[in-house]
Amino acid sequence: MTALPATSEAGARVPMGASLRPLLRLVIPALLVVGAYAFMGPEQFVNAMTRGAIYALIALGYTMVYGIIELINFAHGDMFMMGAFVSLTFLGQILGLTGSITEIAKLAPLLVAAFFISMIVMGAVGVTIERLAYKPLRAAPRLAPLITAIGVSFILQNIVMLKYGPYQTNSPKIFPSVDIVIGTAKIPALSLFIIVVAVVMMIALQLFIGRTRLGRAMRSTAADRDAAQLMGVNINRTIAITFLIGAALAGAAGVVNGLQYGVSRFDDGFQAGLKAFTAAVLGGIGNTVGAALGGFIIGFIEVGATVMGFSRWGPAIVFGTLVIVLVFRPSGLLGQQLGERA
C-alpha cells in the first residue's frame, strides 16, 4: 500500500457546490448561535452555555474512554454525581460552610481546593474501577464489560444512597450570587466562572492530547492498540490515564454542578450521563472537540425546550436528538475524524 497525495480520482467526484462548503461550515453555526441568542435572550443564552459546559465536561470522559477501549462506561455519569458529593462533603460537612463567601481572597483558595480534591478523588476512583472491573475483561466478549459497567454504575449509586439517603442533599453555594449587568441583561458571575473553568479545562485537555508524550500515546492507542504496543507504548498505563483524566473532568463537572444548583442526589448521574453521552455521539464519539461541541448543543436544546415551555419534556427531547443523530449521522457532526481518531 502506498501513501499518495490526496488527488487523482477524488477530484472528478466532488459533488456540486463543494466549494461553498467551507464557507457554509462557518456561516451556519454562526447563524445558529445568533438565532439562539435572539430567541432565548441573554440570560437563557448564558444558562444554556452553563449547562452545556457541564455536559461537555462529562461528555469528554465518555468520548475518551470510548475512543481508547470502545466501552460505553455507564458508570461515568455516576462519577459526575460522586464528584458533586465529594465537593459537598468537603465544603459543607468538613469545613462546615453553608452560605456564599464574598471575599475573593477566601473564596479562591476554597474553590481551588474543592476542584483539586474532587478531581483527585474521582480520578482515583476512576482508575480503581478500571483496574478492578474493566481491565480483566479487555479480551472478553463485548457484552461482558458493558454489563460490568452498568453493574458498577448501580454500585456507585447505591453506595451514595446508603450514605446520604435517597433524598436531595444540600451543597453549599459558596460562590456569591453576584450579577454582571450588561445593558439590560443580568448575567450571574457564577455562570461566567463555570464557562471559563470548563473552557480552560477543555483547552488544557486538547493541549495535553496534542502536545505531550502521554497524549500521543493515547492517540496511538486509540488508533491501533496492538501497533501502539509494538511501538513501545505502555497500554495499561495509557488506558489508566485516560480513565483518570475522564473521571477527574467528571469530578470537576460535579463541583460545578454543586455550585450552580446547590443540591445533589444519588441518581443525578443517570440522566446527566445519558445527556452527556448523547453529546458525545452528537459530536462524533471518540472526538474530544466534538464532545465539547455536543455538550454545548445539548445545553442549548435543553434550555431551548424550557424556553418554549416544554421543560418537562427535556429528557425526552434530548433522547429524541440521540435517535435522530443515530439515524441520520451516526458518525456525529465531526465524525469524519473517527477513522483516525483525534
Binding site: 460490568t148 453493574g151 458498577v152 454504575s153 454500585i155 449509586q157
Partner: peptide, 9 residues
C-alpha cells in the same frame, strides 16, 4: 440493589 450491582460485576 447494591447486591445486584455487586452480583453483576
Amino acid at each position: 440493589f447494591l447486591l445486584y450491582g455487586l452480583a453483576l460485576v
